[in-house]
Amino acid sequence: MSTSALCLVCVSLLFGTSLSCLQCFIDISVRNRLCWGHVLTEHNVRYVDGCFKKLDRLFDRNERVIEAGRVGRGYNKQLKEIMEAEILPMAKEFNQKRNKDTLYEERLQTAADNFIAAASKLPRVSGCFPPCGFQSAGAVYNCIICRYDSCEFPLDCPFEEINVTENSRSQIWCEVPFPLPGDIEVIWSVAERVKTQLVDHFKEVTAGVDRLYSIPSTSLQHQGTYKCEIYSGQRSIVRLYYYLTVTPQVVEGHAELQDIFDLSLLSKGPILPEPVGSPPSLLPSPLLLTTCLTSLLLLLFLSLGALYWLTMPE
């Protein structure tokens, strides 16, 4: 009864098999050598399957091992070295020699604990920064699939709105919240007058390393979508979209002109509407100018009179 129960447990363990750090880094021939002499003490049989089930339990389905294996990009080599340092000597020692399952259990458990302790010290990464971009530095090693995870964000970022006034300077910064590799190329493209992410609407305008796109004097023709696409080693890693809205200056000129009329003109005659597009008057009204000049002259004469009086001899 106990035997069949044991077998049932063993088989159920076999069914739950998945890959992990051990299977990623240790070749099957090494695992075969390691497990060759695994003796099931209860029945005194050289039961190789049982050893693989132990590996499965202690490494492959051990959450702590998988978690310790979540290292940053480039550190999988060190992970392999740590695992090999634990397993290879044991495989050499155990090959073609019969050893009790209890010894296997003890030694493999120690190996797993040592791996966890050493691998946990390897650098991790801060993670992924949503919502877009291929973030290679954000990826961590995944011992279940034996490769690095991706952050799984789309390359296209959502639109960012930018509002500028006509004739003013526009500056668009291609900023991403995640660290970029050193070898980037930035390509700026424009889709004039439309808000779109469709590739065929864009015309390339600049290519290089400059992440700032600047328009010294923005005109109405500049309105549209500006795309900044960053490449690393010929591969696109992120696409940012900025929709530039240009407010015509004439609208602002009209508002200012109205204020001047209200404050200073105060003429009783009918105010004719200004034709659209006429340049706004920068000079104040003649009446206001006359008043100001008269006041200034009066002040000058009064000052001169006062000065003359004070300096006049007795």
Binding site: I28, R31, W36, H43, V45, R46, Y47
Partner: peptide, 18 residues
Amino acid sequence: HILEVEKPYELIVTECPP
């Protein structure tokens, strides 16, 4: 052990429990 069919495998002898 469980392996992709296209990969070379090595057969080793195991002794089954009752």
